[in-house]
Design a protein around this nucleic acid. Structure first.
Lengths: 352, 352
DNA sequence: ACCGGCTGCTCAAGTAGTTGACCAAGCGTT
DNA sequence: AACGCTTGGTCAACTACTTGAGCAGCCGGT
């Protein structure tokens, strides 16, 4: 029946026989105005009772909670690494990320359809007075109109992997053009001339897919004898193997395929196996993202490794700089992180 | 230079021309004592200004923040799914998980060595007055002594996948014995008689590995003609392929291997390929956990699928029940979730 | 004796909001 | 006219803590 509570400053002050305000000042480090003996008594009492400052109170007093809201869908290892980078950098600056892991693993949240739900989720964070938000592209698009007003409330926003025409915050993305050019060059150097690209659903929230495909098409087109053709998945993005089969049996007869993510590359593998095509003998495949399974596919998939942890760290850094640092009051910034082509065993010379 | 702040209740009250306390009561739903017209004015004003209750204040007033601290290492897809379950269930009950994603992806945190760091991390959550904690086994062990005192502070704890002799909270784990018996039966039915088990590091924080191995050994031993031998990884857990090679070239010459996680199973695959052994022709392999890559390994790995999302949901449910519900004041509970044997293509009849 | 300055501490108001106590006006009743 | 009751609100104290203002006591200087 006992209720042993968390000790309050008042308890410490009583134990040390001083006023609450004296205890507060001493424990904040403002000791110059107090006697040495008094300070000792207060510090000793606070330690004995295990007192800890209540950060909720600091939050309402200063208007700063040192927390950052992070809105993400449950997703593959790439995003887990981004998150890890966010946590690392924010942790160093003594910020605490509060992550809203929305939707379940099977279906991404479809908030376009449910306006109210979106607002509710943002408010779960804002009601706790997070100092800033980090957003995945899905949410950046779905919640656009609700987020645009945050700047006026002094809640900075950083968007990852989505560059908008009318930004309402800073953004971080992978600099893909360079890595994509490296992929194109690699395939052309191997003698491939009929090259396919398999893209994902290219929805509004996946502008990266569109851009990645365009970058690749452009890079291949520079070589006059080479030709690219592109295919893409349906709206739900669940017909990957079907599209891959289509693409491989098309009149075009590509000798190499570039997939905008490793997921699609995996679909190409499956289709190739069923069709009896060997990789890389009959068909070269290149993925993108270097997800968990890329290195253990058979054969190991050549792909483009982004630097997810670095992306996360950069996003966190941008927020920190905007809250207290050099970015305060400055125009929005778009930051790009390099990516590296990883050569493994899924590419070979074009068949004669 | 303008500072357009988040609206306060005071602003709403002034706009509606009532006292702050009237506004507070009306907006909390206690309208019986106020005129219809007044209520309308207050509600309208609050909506127009976009007022939202500051949950930090509610937190200091009620002693409840409706937040739960979650301490996890960055880890494989299994844990991501557990997290997803936690978020789902807590979200339904309007709790907000605050996840501390400790350590980086390459090395798990080694807090045994750095006592102070551990305390610091727990305090990051407690200082924000989380109502409860959910812990991964790593932390449950490393921070044991600091966590034991939380019960006295009325901060319930749920530990996942780790059963202690002196529990200081509720716990959830997979009920492995049944699934492990199914694996054993499957291998014995296929005619295997010399069966190896490859375990991971079996440290204090990985008691599940020990238990899983023991369960398996016991299940095999029931068949008198069959024999099990076990190997395990070193302290750092990075010599998997080496141990697998050892095990496969040992005089024992096992025809089947049970790996305590899919990670070790993957090491067995690698060793088998190097040694020229075909799976499942020369060697049957069974894993545990059904991680992301298990289904896409070549051949697809037979394994035991735990129900991580269900584990997460159960952990969250236990907390909710203990905070406000039927579990308040009751003795600690240990809850078990079933697991299912998933038959894929990595097992076959024992070679003659 | 009186003033200035320093030391060492307390007071009170503030952060945003909640809640029990209280109070005034209006009405009907005796 | 005095009483009780309902309606419609306000007041003040409380949550945990911070912070600028202020004040008592003591010392040295004139």
């Amino acid at each position: 029946m006992s209720q042993p509570r968390v000790p309050r400053l008042k308890d410490v002050a009583e134990a040390a026989n001083v006023s609450v305000s004296a205890a507060s000042k001493i424990l904040r480090g403002d000791r110059s105005r107090f006697g040495e003996e008094t300070c000792r008594r207060v510090v000793e009492a606070s330690e004995r009772l295990g007192w800890r400052r209540n950060l909720l109170v600091s939050g309402i007093q200063t208007g700063r909670t040192n927390t950052v809201g992070v809105m993400i869908p449950p997703y593959d290892s790439f995003w887990v690494k981004v998150l890890s980078g966010i946590h690392k950098r924010l942790g160093e600056a003594d910020f605490l990320p509060i992550t809203l892991w929305l939707g379940d693993l099977d279906h991404l949240p479809h908030f376009e359809a449910n306006e109210q739900e979106g607002v509710r989720q943002i408010n779960r964070l804002l009601d706790r007075r997070v100092d800033a938000l980090i957003l995945w592209p899905t949410f950046a698009v779905a919640y656009q109109e609700h987020l645009a007003g945050l700047a006026e409330k002094n809640v900075p926003v950083v968007v990852i992997d989505h560059r908008s025409d009318e930004p309402y915050g800073d953004s971080v993305a992978t600099n893909e053009s360079q890595a994509t050019r490296a992929v194109a060059k690699h395939l052309l150097d191997l003698g491939h001339r009929r090259i396919a690209c398999i893209s994902s659903r290219e929805s509004k929230s996946q502008t990266w897919a569109l851009e990645r495909r365009r970058n690749f098409e452009r890079a291949i087109s520079l070589k006059s004898e080479a030709e690219v053709r592109s295919w893409r998945l349906n709206r739900t993005g669940d017909n990957g193997v079907e599209v891959a089969t289509h693409l491989l049996t098309d009149d075009f007869r590509p000798t190499a395929v570039f997939a905008v993510t490793d997921h699609e590359a995996h679909c190409v593998y499956e289709a190739a196996i069923t069709l009896g095509l060997s990789i890389p003998g009959d068909l070269s495949v290149v993925g993108f993202a270097d997800l968990d399974f890329a290195a253990t596919m058979m054969p190991p998939l050549s792909t483009v490794r982004q630097r997810p942890q670095e992306i996360g760290e950069r996003a966190a850094s941008l927020l920190i700089d905007r809250l207290d640092g050099p970015l305060a009051g400055e125009p929005f910034v778009h930051s790009e992180i390099e990516a590296d082509f990883v050569l493994r065993e899924s590419t070979g010379p074009a068949p004669a």
